[in-house]
Design a binder for these strands. Structure first.
Lengths: 203, 203
DNA sequence: TTTTGTAAATGAACACTGTTCATTATTTTT
DNA sequence: AAAAATAATGAACAGTGTTCATTTACAAAA
């Protein structure tokens, strides 16, 4: 095949095209297992061409990372209609778990995979993640004002609660639930989060 | 340098030599970042030679995996001197966190990294991990008998508690604590586990 | 002591990876 | 139609895990 036979595309369309192929292959084979050549093949371009639209593989990773957080934050919208803060907290936990279960690989990419998450913490790239965490903190503040979680710092409390949810999701994503031989993974998660909620409620 | 200049070593010694080099490089550069050539270089052998002692890179991974669980289980020994089950549970949580903080990369390898954890769940390879989980379950059973955790299944309860601890460690290992810009990672973990303990105690 | 058989170690090779870049093809502008 | 700018290519580079024919070293037999 002779080169240059593709119709010119505008930059943003091309980025989107690459991103879609990258996503489907990342989620199939994981970040490490997805080669740029396989991504390029899927959309009928050469591997080198990708570098005209993304600096490197990491930039593709970060683009998907951002998209994931936009999706997660989007799923949180119904929470704004829950008036009681404790009920909102519980609902948030359920949404979080639902997201992880329905988007296993994407969750992995967002919260577990290590792609140089460039030192210095780029605020821009974490905006949606930051807003989601902000949402949790705000809910906890309101809970505090209603008398829950007495004498606890929202900073540490939010970390502890996030970790509780993440722990289950992470063990699930990375196949460590198999040590529970006689219990289905999904059952483990569903019950686990119920127990966690019960615990938080009674606190 | 001419080949074959090394003195003959017995199989087990050689495996140990490779394992030590592999460990130090894995913990330096991570599992993916550690090349077999760099491991071989460190002990003055060729890369191909490693394949006489290990089937592939994964087998090295699993050997270190086992060692990690032996170490962790070893650190749990003092727990047998704590008579009150709730105090034993709390102590176990602290030991677990200490292990993760002092052996960050090893913890990562044991609980987060994905190396084909061959399907089917090989009991042999998970013996120590299984015993550690068994220890947790036993403590929880004793707690139950003393009136704690009423109406809760030890299976799900243990998973929830393990997840709570693991969540913090996993966010730490994979650099997701940076979203807490103004709080030191270690402080976050230390306070996080204290809050978690407080919560469990009051349950 | 020399020969022989075996086990250990090698280094080249294979197919793959992410990435770069000079070259070519296409599109746009003049 | 010619020139300038953009887009895409494919070869190349240095790296990876892995395999294997070949070479070396060592121990036992002659």
């Amino acid at each position: 095949m002779s080169p240059g036979f593709k119709t010119t595309m505008h930059r943003e369309e091309m980025r989107q095209l690459i991103l879609e192929a990258a996503k489907s292959i990342f989620l199939e084979k994981g970040f490490q297992g997805a080669s740029l050549r396989s991504i390029a093949d899927r959309i009928g371009y050469s591997a080198g061409n990708i570098y005209l639209y993304f600096k490197d593989k990491d930039e593709i990773f970060h683009a998907l990372h951002e998209e994931g957080f936009r999706r997660l934050f989007g799923m949180m919208q119904p929470l704004f209609h829950v008036s009681d803060p404790m009920e909102r907290l519980v609902a948030m936990g359920r949404v979080y778990m639902e997201f992880a279960l329905n988007n296993k690989e994407l969750y992995d990419l967002m919260f577990i995979m290590e792609a140089p998450i460039e030192s210095g913490f780029d605020k821009q790239k974490w905006e949606m993640g930051d807003r989601t965490l902000g949402l949790l903190k705000q809910i906890l503040t309101e809970c505090s004002e209603k008398g829950h979680f007495r004498d606890m710092d929202v900073e540490y409390l939010s970390f502890m609660i996030w970790s509780g949810m993440h722990g289950m999701c992470a063990l699930y994503c990375r196949g460590r639930c198999i040590v529970y031989e006689h219990t289905r993974e999904e059952e483990l998660l569903k019950q686990g989060v119920e127990y966690f909620i019960r615990m938080i409620r009674s606190f």
